[in-house]
Design a protein around this nucleic acid. Structure first.
Lengths: 212, 212
DNA sequence: GTCTATACTACGATAGAC
DNA sequence: GTCTATCGTAGTATAGAC
């Protein structure tokens, strides 16, 4: 087909525009709050008129959904890339590194984090497609902890529903406090993010393996 | 002064109206999200026209501020009332009971909790007057933990800045997860609130007193 | 694919009558 | 203390020209 290359170029250009719109939305949310996003402002930011946005997103909620999805994909991939490249002595150390990288990502992407973890936008619920990568991440986490259990580094209860919920609660706890109270601090300077290694130790201690 | 009683009656009536407005605001936020509050809707809810609200609050932010303040006062008082009436074997158990009562209050008042702990309303920052009771609560918490240290039940590091931050992070962590993921569950049924005793044990274990 | 024009709704807030 | 009327602004979204 002689028209295929042309389609490719158009598709790529379209993708670029979509990226630009989403980037503008994030910038505006940083200034006005996640729930304070307005399509008119997005349009101004990207140099369009509001109606033109509808060529790329059918509604305001679709923008939130795209951001949710990209956020969920990004932090899933941060974890996976860490698993692929990190040098760790054992599965537990690997998961620790993953969680810290995850924490860095959250502080580098506070808007996505708020959208993902707090869900405070009035009418917004993520679509199943947008939510799927977040579930995959939970499975990845469970897999890592399972490996730590198999290696005799954690008690089997660590991978129970309560164990996983406890893990996410304490890690999300420090990140949540950081985002709410010192949102502009870097990961390394944050009063709360500094505590992430400590809560991981607490978890490890609680689920110490049975002796033998 | 013969007019004094009349003033009292007026003042009381005015207080009642203010209460009614704030209660309506909370009801609406439960339905539409904390950041989705509109004065017109509040006015409709209480059976007024929007301009009449300005007799009671000079702006929309003043309503948020009043709710923040009342929330901060309420959970400070929940803790203090618990200290006054709870039967506890030692300061550490007392603080544990306080924290659990605090958790119950959060789940019973999710809107106030969101306002207090997440701060996701675009232009809103609490006034110093509204914030003061929250600081008092932090001091109360520190005092309780100090008593536990004095009783030889916790390591002195527990009342360091990091220790306190760790305490608030892990407790706020389970509550935050609960509010975000299962906001409608009761305290007793929540998948995350159930874990509150466990995180308190983790804290206690981490800051176990020096032996001797 | 971007625009103008516009429909429609709603908002927060103020002025001034009663 | 409550109202009507209104200002000024902004919002989301659609129709249709180019």
């Amino acid at each position: 087909m002689s028209t295929a290359p042309s389609f490719d170029r158009r598709a790529r250009r379209r993708e670029q525009t979509i990226d630009e719109i989403l980037a503008a939305a994030v910038r505006l949310m940083e200034a006005e709050g996640v729930a304070g996003l307005s399509l008119s402002a997005v349009a101004r930011e990207v140099g369009m008129r509001p109606p033109s946005l509808y060529q790329y997103f059918p509604s305001k909620m679709a923008i939130y959904d795209a951001l949710f999805r990209r956020g969920a994909e990004a932090f899933r991939d941060v974890r996976r890339e860490t698993v692929r490249t990190a040098v760790a002595a054992d599965p537990l150390e690997l998961e620790r590194i993953c969680t810290i990288e995850f924490g860095r990502w959250c502080m580098a992407n506070p808007i996505h984090s708020q959208l993902l973890f707090w869900r405070t936008v009035p009418g917004f619920t993520p679509s199943p497609e947008a939510y799927a990568p977040a579930q995959e991440t939970m499975e990845d986490l469970r897999g890592n902890l399972r490996a730590a259990v198999a290696a005799g580094l954690l008690h089997p209860d660590a991978v129970s529903d309560d164990g996983i919920a406890l893990y996410t609660s304490v890690t999300a706890g420090v990140l949540s406090q950081q985002l709410a109270n010192e949102p502009d601090a870097s990961y390394d300077d944050g009063r709360f993010t500094r505590l992430l290694p400590a809560v991981l130790e607490m978890f490890q201690q609680r689920y110490a393996p049975p002796r033998g």
